[in-house]
Design a protein around this nucleic acid. Structure first.
Ligand SMILES: NC(=O)c1ccc[n+]([C@@H]2O[C@H](COP(=O)([O-])OP(=O)(O)OC[C@H]3O[C@@H](n4cnc5c(N)ncnc54)[C@H](O)[C@@H]3O)[C@@H](O)[C@H]2O)c1
Ligand SMILES: NC(=O)c1ccc[n+]([C@@H]2O[C@H](COP(=O)([O-])OP(=O)(O)OC[C@H]3O[C@@H](n4cnc5c(N)ncnc54)[C@H](O)[C@@H]3O)[C@@H](O)[C@H]2O)c1
Lengths: 208, 208
DNA sequence: ACAGTATTGTGAAATAAATAACAGCTACGA
DNA sequence: TCGTAGCTGTTATTTATTTCACAATACTGT
């Protein structure tokens, strides 16, 4: 089983490969992929090994074939759809983003509890009420939920989503979810991230 | 020197401690902090060691004193201010978020290249033009920049920002920045994150 | 005053991740 | 056709991170 870090890098390589392809390239070396992804060539090769695809010792990797091989490993994204819960400032921005972007699980439905939002469209998606979650998940066969709600609401909503069949979350609310450990959660904590950047930005060129 | 992961967790602990304090608690055990942060008690203790603060073997950690000690280690956030570049969908959401939120570097200025935005206010911040970056950074003594621009613009803008004194970036654009390695960058790549969640969500309860 | 107890602080051990090293290929030019 | 330069695949090594395990400790109740 691949680790989350392997998966992250494979996803990143795939995006880079897709861009290279659009630019008309046919082959790429691990060293070039390392440059473009900010990693190390040995690691790139090691990650790619995991997909089972073999490059050519003189030409490098065939971009087309490598993309297919990564598709195969990650699972064609289409196989897994998502719903987004909480159509506020962040939720709306994410809708716009994921819509214009091929990769990743396709958003198939959006949900809010605010009556003034239910029934309206956002980025072309009709907003459903929180009570319609089970139906929505069933009909869209979604397994992923993107959580953009206030932190004090998130645990309760996550519980409902799990009951309805969700197996993975992107959680933007700054709180740890107490859920079974067969459910995957990715925490995207921007406040923590900002403090980390501030920490290192303020130490650079002082201690080093 | 602390690692980025240590810093992330310390920042997280501080947020949790602040909430516990508001709820009226005075002391907390490492085991409780581990629960609330989703970690392990030994690791919590190890992280806290790095701040130099010692808990009490019977009572646990004094919440007040521990917060002060973490403040001291991370640097009172106030010491490091930030500017946000790219006031689009995501930029506006982030402005709203960081405004209502005490921690993290304070946003001191915002920048866009769109003439229809320059001179207007967003979440109370006046939007400056890209040419005013050097002045803005100097006047606000910012060392951090939050990058919310299209990916094909980001490298060029980052170069300007570095020239003007920025030492750390939060980069939301899905592209690796080619910059000196004394500049810190945190990449927040939501497409990758979404694919990772989809991968694990679709495998849970199959292979395990 | 003091035994009991549950927690801290921390070295040692285990695990995970990244990097280096190099044998084995393969296209290509002479 | 053959030698070679420069790549890949993969093992070995190193480095980083997490977890374990337990002596030292300080409060509590008697
Ligand atoms: N805005 C940002 O850039 C940003 C950045 C990082 C994290 N966050 C976090 O993301 C979350 C959302 O942030 P936001 O700025 O979009 O907030 P917001 O207040 O703009 O939006 C929250 C939305 O959730 C809806 N909601 C509330 N309770 C709900 C429930 N029980 N069920 C369904 N919908 C519900 C609200 O109606 C609203 O539409 C917060 O936890 C915030 O801390 C936001
Ligand atoms: N919207 C999201 O939720 C989201 C999520 C993840 C990542 N991103 C990434 O964040 C970036 C911004 O996304 P967005 O949805 O806000 O896009 P957007 O198009 O809504 O906003 C981009 C903003 O940047 C400004 N801009 C463009 N070039 C500029 C320049 N050279 N200097 C200064 N300002 C400039 C534009 O005027 C606009 O205001 C993109 O790279 C996107 O891939 C967005």
């Amino acid at each position: 089983m691949l680790s989350p870090k392997n998966i992250e890098r494979l996803s990143l390589y795939r995006r880079i490969l897709t861009e290279l392809k659009q630019d008309g390239s046919e082959f790429v070396y691990s060293s070039r992929l390392a440059e473009l992804s900010g990693g190390n060539a040995a690691q790139v090769r090691r990650d790619l090994m995991a997909t089972g695809y073999s490059g050519n010792p003189k030409l490098g990797y065939s971009i087309n074939e490598l993309i297919l091989s990564i598709d195969d490993t990650l699972g064609k994204s289409k196989c897994c759809s998502a719903i987004l819960v909480g159509v506020g400032n962040l939720g709306k921005a994410l809708l716009a983003y994921f819509k214009n972007q091929g990769a990743g699980p396709a958003i198939k439905g959006i949900v809010d509890c605010d009556k003034s939002k239910i029934g309206k469209k956002f980025s072309g998606y009709l907003c459903y009420s929180i009570d319609e979650i089970p139906t929505l998940i069933e009909e869209t066969s979604s397994r992923v939920a993107i959580l953009c709600l206030p932190k004090n609401e998130v645990q309760e909503v996550a519980n409902k989503l799990i009951k309805a069949g969700i197996k993975g979350f992107m959680n933007f609310a700054p709180i740890h979810l107490d859920i079974p450990d067969n459910i995957f959660v990715d925490y995207i904590d921007m406040a923590v991230s900002a403090e980390k950047v501030a920490y290192f930005a303020c130490r650079i060129n002082k201690n080093k």
